[in-house]
Amino acid sequence: MRYVLAGAAFGILLTKSEAISWFRMQEMFRFQSFHMYGLLFSAAGAGALGLRFVKGRKNPRGETMTLAPKKIGTGIRYLAGGIIFGLGWGLSGVCPGPVFTLIGRGVGVAAVFLLSALAGTWAYAVLRPRLPH
């Protein structure tokens, strides 16, 4: 239940910051508004400060708080996967957080986007053994 509340807070923030808007993404990709850059970098900055504070300490459940480092490998997966993701993000202005938030907002057709994203995930699962990582 605490994760539902955290998700709801995240969804409200995505809505009120208008990060669910295709227009805001277009402003960003055309370098015509600072809003999304400010949002992303202040989020990463605040997250970094918060991590400095909590990492290595124990949370109330007694777990040592940590984030697993991502394996780098050749790094090709981050660039190639990132570009493929970016193509879809640039077209639709939607990424995986906002798609759920849009559905809750009542934009029913976002469910089609979600189903197609599931198909894309499945396609990756099938092709994964043949892709460079």
Binding site: G47, K70, G88, P96, S116
Partner: peptide, 29 residues
């Protein structure tokens, strides 16, 4: 909607994350 969704789903898994996992959490870390 169909093409964009497919690319987002494929790319996010290939890259191992999306705007939240990489853009917020990954950059923060």
């Amino acid at each position: 909607l169909i093409g964009g969704g497919f690319l987002v789903g494929f790319g996010a898994r290939y890259a191992g994350g999306c705007t939240s996992g990489h853009g917020v959490a990954g950059l923060a870390d």
